[in-house]
């Protein structure tokens, strides 16, 4: 198992390396640059060249990359090109705001939004998925599946807009935009994220539980007269947990994109808003930092899920040990 973990860790590190490289190359090959973004229509070639030189953007890309990766490994993502007194290289003495300082607040806000959403998603998906699986074919099961499909078919921005109309205009009990992180401000963004995601997670949990319910050990447990609640808690959920965790790993990946859209829609001060602002200003260090954080979230979540599956699924454990 140790070798498996080592292999899996190496794979995660390789993925992180590939991700950072892709992010760096992708961001640096975006059309436009910070100089033209700030200068606007007064971006003469001379002015652009002057600012690019001040920002070090005239160096060979490999040199910029090695410089960036060396610092990124130490969690130093550099300084903003567009924010702070020294931004745009106007002052040799002062640099732009440190990226870590700039994105720290946004990350915290997004972490709050994502965590609350994920916890709710897990609770709702497990409850409805298990209930649906246990009562498959019933009206309640059909209802859960119908609404699951309904929400699954709606993009975040459409569902979010409908939720705003419902709860901010027709029944004005919640704010239409969320400028601060307060429980009240979190309700509608969280609701949007959970509803969009639960369409797939509830269905996958349901399928996973149904598969377990068909196994011989569950049938045997029933024949032995073990109470249904105990069967669910003792046999079904532990054995369904691995595929269910896979479902939430997928959900984590989808969350990364969903959070950006939902934050933008609600004006929530998280990485979604920050990412869009930084990208529009071609603030490379900030965009790179956001992209790395988002990508790492996905990779780390997947790694964690593999670990959980390994610990909870004897079959996988046996396979890993062999």
């Amino acid at each position: 198992m140790g070798r498996y973990l080592l292999r899996r860790s190496a794979l995660a590190i390789a993925s992180l390396f590939a991700l950072t490289t892709l992010v760096f190359v992708g961001v640096n090959f975006l059309p436009g640059d910070p100089a033209t973004a700030v200068l606007g229509k007064s971006a003469t070639p001379e002015k652009v060249a002057s600012i690019q030189k001040a920002l070090g953007l005239n160096k060979p890309i490999w040199e910029m990359y090695t410089n960036w990766i060396t610092h990124a490994l130490q969690l130093d993502f550099g300084h903003s090109l567009t924010y702070g007194t020294g931004a745009y290289g106007y002052s040799d003495a002062v640099q732009g705001t440190a990226v870590s300082e700039l994105i720290g607040g946004s990350l915290k806000n997004t972490a709050i939004l994502a965590s609350v959403s994920m916890i709710l998603l897990i609770i709702v998906s497990l409850s409805l998925g298990v209930y649906s699986a246990m009562h498959r074919g019933s009206i309640a099961d059909s209802g859960v599946q119908f609404f699951g499909l309904f929400f699954l078919g709606l993009p975040e921005f459409v569902l979010g807009a409908l939720i705003i109309i419902a709860f901010a205009f027709y029944w004005p009990i919640l704010p239409a935009i969320s400028l601060d992180v307060t429980p009240k401000n979190l309700v509608l963004p969280v609701l949007t994220l959970v509803l969009v995601m639960m369409g797939s997670t509830v269905r996958l949990v349901r399928v996973g539980v149904i598969e377990v319910l068909k196994t011989n050990y569950v049938v045997t447990a029933r024949l032995r007269g073990i109470p249904e609640r105990r069967i669910i808690m003792r046999y079904v959920i532990p054995n369904a947990i691995a595929p269910v965790m896979q479902v939430f790993a997928i959900a984590t990946g989808l969350f990364v994109g969903g959070v950006v859209v939902v934050e933008y829609l609600f004006g929530y001060p998280g990485i979604g808003t920050g990412f869009v602002s930084a990208a529009s200003g071609r603030d490379y260090p900030v965009v790179q930092a956001y992209a790395v954080v988002l990508g790492c979230t996905y990779i780390v979540a997947n790694f964690a899920v593999d670990l959980i599956a390994l610990l909870t699924n004897p079959k996988m454990r046996a396979k890993a040990t062999s």
Binding site: A161, I164, A168, F169, P172, P175, A176, I177, L179, Y264, L265, F266, G267, P269, T273, V276, S277
Partner: peptide, 19 residues
């Protein structure tokens, strides 16, 4: 002065009195 990137969110903000 607050940053609200989306034009629709900005209008919703005024309509609901947040902005």
């Amino acid at each position: 002065i607050v940053n609200v990137m989306d034009a629709t969110a900005r209008i919703n903000g005024v309509r609901t009195g947040i902005l």
